[in-house]
Amino acid sequence: MSGRGVTDGGGATDEERLARVALTRIVEPGDELAGSWLTRYGPVETARALGAATPLPGVGERRWAGLRLRAAAARPAEDLETLTALGGRFLCPGDVEWPGQLDDLATARPVGLWARGAASLRFAALRSVAVVGARACTEYGAHVASMLGAGLAEHGWTVVSGAAYGVDAAAHRGALAVGGSTVGVLACGVDVAYPPGNRELISRLGQEGWLLAELAPGEHPTRPRFVLRNRVIAALTRGTVVVEARLRSGSLSTARWAARLGRHTMGVPGAVTSGLSSGVHALLRNEGQLVTGAEEVIELVGPMGALAPVPDRPVLARDLLHPATVRVLEALPAGRAVPVEWVARASGTAAEQTRARLGELRALGFVEGVQDRWQLTHPPG
Rank of each mutant, 00 (worst) to 15 (best):
R89Q: 09
V242C: 05
Q289S: 15
E15A: 15
L276N: 11
D104C: 11
R313Y: 00
T237F: 02
P55L: 13
G51L: 13
E368D: 12
L307F: 10
L212H: 08
L69T: 14
R89W: 01
R223G: 02
V338L: 01
L121E: 12
A106H: 08
G100Q: 12
M304K: 08
E299M: 02
D104M: 02
P110F: 09
V297Y: 14
E61M: 11
A106Q: 11
E15W: 02
R135V: 06
T158M: 05
L18C: 09
A294F: 02
A53V: 04
W98L: 07
G94P: 11
P333L: 06
R63V: 06
E45S: 10
W157C: 03
V159Q: 01
P303V: 04
H155A: 04
V242Q: 13
R223P: 07
A317T: 15
A118Y: 00
V343Q: 09
D319Y: 08
G94R: 05
E299H: 04
A170T: 03
A213I: 14
R248W: 03
Q101C: 13
G179F: 05
G206K: 09
L276Y: 07
M266I: 11
A306Y: 01
W98D: 07
A282Y: 03
P196S: 12
N198C: 04
T7C: 08
G180Y: 02
V159S: 01
S251Q: 10
E368M: 11
G365Y: 08
P29M: 15
G88C: 11
R20L: 07
A259K: 15
G239L: 00
A153S: 09
A213K: 06
A337S: 13
V44Q: 05
I202T: 14
D31R: 07
R318S: 04
L38P: 03
C137M: 08
G270S: 08
E341H: 06
T13Y: 12
F226P: 13
H281I: 10
E45M: 09
V59T: 14
T107N: 06
T24I: 00
G10A: 12
T325V: 14
W374K: 11
A22C: 12
A177Y: 00
L261I: 10
